[in-house]
Amino acid sequence: MIFLRYILFPIVPFYYLVTWLRNKLYDLEIKKSISYHIPVICVGNLSVGGTGKTPMIEYLIGLLKEDYLVATLSRGYKRKTEGFQLADNDATAKSIGDEPFQFYNKFKKEILVAVDADRNNGIKQLQLIDGKPEIILLDDAFQHRKVKAGFNILLTTYSKPYFKDIVLPTGNLREPRNGSKRANVIVVTKCPKNISDAEKNSILQQINPEANQHVFFSSISYLDHVISSNTNRSIEGLEDFTLVTGIANAAPLVHFLNEKALKFEHLNFKDHHEFSKQDILELNKKELIVTTEKDFMRLKQYESLRDKLFYLPISITINDEVKINKLIKSFLKTKL
């Protein structure tokens, strides 16, 4: 796959030109973006792959849900439905996608969860329902420029920052690096917890933010227990188990479990893997399965796995939560 990417390098300038031109047309308002009176906060990235959008959306939900009626709006990647869908008690990972289903399972009594590939239509539909939201969080919509979000949060990982990457197909960027200028906030995610001030300053210099942009650093925190559909277990008490992951980068999770000196085998699938009947038959043979929360949303439907399937929750820690929270709430005051 890596070799193929290098072979396709001659295509890179064409991809760059097409995406640059598309953005330029929006910047010049030749192509139209729609703004809304309702506050719209977008969380996204420049690159393909996992940058930590789901934990960031959950962070925002936790910050806002006590004071506002919040809705999340996602594409619903790999769902089996089409058009606008508002999550309800019949929702599954297949009907709305695994990440939106995760939001719904965790916060269903406190927020609205919707999916629509057409974000403008999704916003319009949300505003038509009874009990319409006061704030909409757009999940993975940084390149969806038909919507002009009021506040853009751009994520980039510590290990693979956008400023050291190039566009597809050889690199991982969906658009040129200068797309980062649209962000109000840039968060460098999945940082080591002991990242030094010198390293932060070095990254800041490479990002070279605009005067109106703010840069933050976040790290992942794993909880000290795993959760099933009906019980919790301490990580320290886990013995020989199977780790099942279908995410973009499982390395941080594997590193955490290795640091705990736990004994496990790792079944590593591609991101958003659709578990087949054969996969489930193989998993049925395992005595204890630990997975990510996102994968748990797809696997928990199988009754045969219910008593052996657990997920390890995560949260994020941001280096200056007071400042980022103040920026977000200041934006809301201008819209509400």
Rank of each mutant, 00 (worst) to 15 (best):
L8H: 01
P10K: 03
P10Y: 07
V12G: 06
R22K: 15
K24N: 14
Y26Q: 13
D27F: 13
S35R: 04
Y36I: 02
I38K: 01
I41A: 05
G44Q: 02
L46M: 05
G49R: 07
T51F: 02
M56Y: 03
E58I: 03
E66H: 14
Y68T: 02
T72Q: 05
G76I: 13
Y77I: 07
T81E: 07
Q85H: 14
D90W: 09
A91E: 06
T92E: 05
Y104P: 12
Y104L: 09
K109M: 12
V113S: 08
A114C: 09
V115W: 08
D118T: 12
L126S: 08
L126F: 09
Q127L: 14
L128T: 11
I129W: 12
G131L: 07
P133E: 09
A141R: 06
A141G: 14
Q143I: 10
K146Q: 14
N152S: 08
T157P: 10
Y162G: 03
Y162V: 12
V167A: 09
R174G: 06
N178D: 15
N178R: 15
S180Q: 14
S180L: 14
V185A: 03
P192W: 04
P192V: 02
K193G: 06
D197T: 12
N201P: 00
I203S: 02
Q206I: 10
Q206N: 13
E210V: 08
A211V: 08
H214N: 08
F216I: 01
F217V: 01
I220H: 01
D224S: 01
S229Y: 13
T231W: 10
T231S: 15
I235S: 01
E236Y: 01
G237H: 11
F241T: 03
L243I: 04
T245V: 03
A251G: 00
P252H: 03
P252Y: 02
L257N: 03
K260H: 10
A261N: 11
K263D: 07
K263T: 10
H266T: 04
H266E: 01
H266K: 02
L267R: 11
N268D: 13
K270Q: 11
S276I: 08
D279Y: 09
L281T: 05
E282P: 00
E282K: 13
K285V: 02
T291V: 11
D307H: 15
L309A: 11
P313V: 14
N319K: 00
D320L: 00
V322T: 00
K323Q: 00
I324D: 02
K326W: 05
L327C: 04
I328R: 06
I328V: 06
K329E: 07
T334R: 06
L336M: 10
